[in-house]
Write a protein that binds this DNA or RNA. Sequence first.
RNA 1: GUCCCCUUCGUCUAGUGGUCAGGACUCAGGAUUUUCAUUCCUGCAACAGGGGUUCGACUCCCCUAGGGGAUGCCA
Length: 505
Amino acid sequence: MTKVRTRFAPSPTGFVHIGGLRTALYNYLFAKRHAGTFILRIEDTDRTRFVEGATENLIHALDWAGLVPDEGPSSGGDYGPYYQSQRTGLYQKYARDLLDKGYAYYAFDTPEEIESMREKVRQAGAPPPKYDFHVRLNMRNSLTLGETEVQKLLDEGTPYVIRLKIPEDRTFDVEDKIRGRVSFNSSQVDDQVLIKSDGYPTYHLANIVDDHLMDITHVIRGEEWLSSVPKHLYLYECFGWQSPVMAHLPLILNPDKSKMSKRDITSLDDMPSGKVDPDVASYIKKGYEPEALINYIALLGWNPGEGDERQIFPVHDLVQEFSLERVNKAAAVFDLKKLDWINSQHISLKDTKELVERIKPQLAGKGIVPESDEYLVRVVDLLKTRMSFIDQFVTLGEYFFCEPEQYDPVTVKKRWKDDSVKLILEFIEEISKLEMFDKAGMEQALHRVAERNDAGAGRIIHPIRLAVSGTGVGPGLYELLEVLGRETVINRLKKGIKDIPKMKQ
RNA sequence: GUCCCCUUCGUCUAGUGGUCAGGACUCAGGAUUUUCAUUCCUGCAACAGGGGUUCGACUCCCCUAGGGGAUGCCA
């Protein structure tokens, strides 16, 4: 069997679409699953849309996501160049070949002429006309003009395009890996421009030529390409090449089921209702873990199958289990809530040491120097299951490193009672006597105070947490106290009973 | 308009003729001998509609509706 080769072939428009990332992911997974090669090819044949830095941005996003191409602009490879803009000679050559064989023709119509043709028909009837077999004999092209006239126009340097001459009544069938058999009739297909008047190829020509020359075995791309398949199939036929296996992926939609568009969005924290940001860079910036985003979008259209109810997949497992047969046909809605949950799951699963290293700079940025690595490890262990994002660490756990400067007013109002001072004083007394300042001892101490005062544990727990951390939420109280240490706890409790009552006045 | 694709809980989905239609997120309630944003448990909630085929349809066929894509010298 030939070696699997897949390609991700984005056009560098300036940002990476979340759907594009998923396409890249599926191409990557499929290639890796079959010990094949994953290729990045830049489809930059639209010079009017050239965006400075777009390719770098693209490569950076793939890199971040861990989808590093085996071949591509920054990886090299034997099938380069990997920029289509650097392959124009090739496309010219193959277009000429089509011309010679009569599969394609020159067309000299200006955009204005075509527009006026369309306008005329539009006014006469209803259906907006295509440049196809209905109209091609009424236009200015090498089918209607005669050889000498064509040669003359060419010699004069008249702008022209090369169009594919689609046969009139043909059926094209594709056996799509995801959708099964799909058929098209050529009567619905227009005479696609192959070479534009600026000499650059269109996507349709370039992708066929490159996929063939680069030995691509499987074309995995978005559903928006499905209706172009007959053109592509016909091109393969004209060239006498074998078509790669095709798989058309479903779309990813906004919560309101519209297409995800960059236009809708200003920032990830401020999205119009029903919309979601399609720009991968926004997710990077917001602090999502790459594995989490990958995990989430993998599940947006793929699942491991019957009886397998896992939600959390390391990339390695995805590679192991991915198959095109298990990709869904229907479009999926992007759900930020589930992404966030998956992100928190991945953080919980991370090695504490790794988290510690990533958290250090965060602390340093706040001017916080932990007393020791060992202490930091204990704090991270306590908090890692509670973080949705790693950059929440300081907000969540600042009190582990500095005395609280203020007490959350809502919690004060809700939890601080008239007897709080008394209860805390008794608690201080109890823990001062403790032989071992540990969870068990603290729990017993607390319950002794509770019983003695005929109060629920909560009546003491809440004020203690508040005095010690300044907040109403956090890890288990006993663990929290244990990590903080006796001296700190007692100091903070004393400070709390002095300062918090002032807030109640 | 035409062509193509799609349609199971709010969302992601399992399911390939006989299931109490399962799981996950969200939400609600509860438990951890009454912290919480962790963990655990419970609950709410779906086969778009109509025709067939069949002893029997979420599963197969047809129609309708809805959604999406294409219809460019953009990809």
